[in-house]
Amino acid sequence: MEIKRKKFQGVLNIISFNRHFYFIGFLLITITIAFSVLFNWSTLLFVIILSLIAYSLIIPLIVSAYVYDFSKYYNFDWLKNINLKKVKNIANIHAGFDETSHLIKSHFPKTKLHVFDFYNKTNHTEKAIIQARSISQVYPNTISISTRHIPLKTNSLDVVFLLSAAHEIRSNHEKETFLKECYRICKPNGHVIMVEHLRDSFNFLAFSVGFTHFFSKTVWLNVFRKANFHLENESKFTPFMSIFNFTKQQ
């Protein structure tokens, strides 16, 4: 059954997952105000510092609302440019926060959908994903896996979806190992469809230093190349999100 998203759910998720960041932000605002009074800062200095803090708190929410609440990301219209008409077996692999498996199933009702969770509390230590996991609804029969092994037969899948999840694998070596497993389970000419924010200028403007949570296009192309995938095409879903369609070619 498809889960209906609430109004501004994307923004509410960002606040919930990153509440430690917003707590620090409001603490910095309080300290800035106190210091400006105690040390008689100039108005210009006070405004500059306060503006920078406010920018880092507000702009990510505006961008998140644009990407996750108003751009129809969860309508999956962006899939229309990828030929997936004859797929029969699909996997959705995530890091424990799953808003997409029900949606994928609704778009491909006649396919077999496998859902895997690769989260490892030792390796994947970002606070945001820990918070996200605590409120996530679990798709039925989701299987917890290691990034070293996906329990499916070789050449068994038409499509693997990695939707805003792969960046939680922080080590490049672990990325390569995981993608080689994806390569193994994909059929010849099978797809890995990855949607990610990138460590680029647009996401720097949106998330300031928080853009370091993501990886550059160069990093992703390198690790997919080492796993023997071919980049079929790349497109932008808003200036802040990239869609990569990699294929298994033999």
Score class of each variant (00 low, 15 high):
residue 141 N to M: 06
residue 19 R to G: 00
residue 239 P to Y: 13
residue 31 I to R: 12
residue 233 N to S: 13
residue 1 M to V: 12
residue 244 F to C: 05
residue 217 K to P: 00
residue 72 K to E: 13
residue 122 T to E: 14
residue 15 I to H: 01
residue 205 L to P: 02
residue 188 P to V: 14
residue 100 T to C: 05
residue 157 L to A: 12
residue 170 R to L: 05
residue 221 L to H: 14
residue 207 F to D: 03
residue 194 M to D: 04
residue 150 I to K: 03
residue 140 P to L: 10
residue 46 F to E: 07
residue 37 V to P: 00
residue 175 K to H: 04
residue 229 F to Q: 06
residue 201 S to Y: 10
residue 19 R to Y: 14
residue 153 K to V: 04
residue 6 K to A: 12
residue 90 I to E: 02
residue 151 P to V: 11
residue 170 R to D: 09
residue 127 K to R: 12
residue 89 N to E: 14
residue 173 H to M: 05
residue 39 F to M: 13
residue 111 T to I: 06
residue 154 T to I: 11
residue 24 I to K: 06
residue 140 P to R: 11
residue 62 I to F: 09
residue 158 D to I: 15
residue 189 N to F: 14
residue 11 V to I: 14
residue 212 T to C: 02
residue 48 I to W: 01
residue 215 F to Q: 11
residue 158 D to N: 15
residue 27 L to V: 13
residue 213 H to D: 11
residue 17 F to S: 01
residue 188 P to D: 14
residue 40 N to F: 15
residue 155 N to Y: 13
residue 219 V to P: 00
residue 148 R to T: 12
residue 79 L to A: 06
residue 160 V to G: 00
residue 60 P to H: 06
residue 112 K to A: 04
residue 232 E to K: 15
residue 54 A to P: 01
residue 237 F to Q: 12
residue 20 H to E: 09
residue 116 F to G: 10
residue 107 H to D: 07
residue 177 T to L: 15
residue 91 A to M: 07
residue 38 L to I: 15
residue 208 S to N: 08
residue 88 K to T: 11
residue 64 S to D: 01
residue 13 N to G: 08
residue 227 A to R: 08
residue 240 F to Q: 06
residue 151 P to S: 10
residue 47 V to P: 02
residue 207 F to M: 08
residue 80 K to L: 08
residue 244 F to G: 03
residue 208 S to Q: 08
residue 78 W to L: 09
residue 14 I to G: 00
residue 226 K to L: 09
residue 19 R to A: 01
residue 165 A to K: 05
residue 38 L to E: 10
residue 39 F to V: 07
residue 179 L to W: 08
residue 123 N to P: 00
residue 52 L to H: 04
residue 211 F to L: 00
residue 15 I to S: 01
residue 21 F to G: 02
residue 2 E to I: 14
residue 82 I to S: 00
residue 167 H to I: 07
residue 248 K to G: 04
residue 101 S to Y: 09
residue 229 F to S: 03
residue 93 I to G: 01
residue 5 R to A: 08
residue 49 I to Y: 09
residue 77 D to W: 12
residue 141 N to I: 04
residue 197 H to D: 03
residue 104 I to M: 03
residue 204 F to N: 02
residue 125 T to S: 10
residue 159 V to E: 02
residue 36 S to N: 14
residue 171 S to G: 06
residue 63 V to T: 08
residue 156 S to W: 12
residue 115 V to S: 04
residue 126 E to G: 01
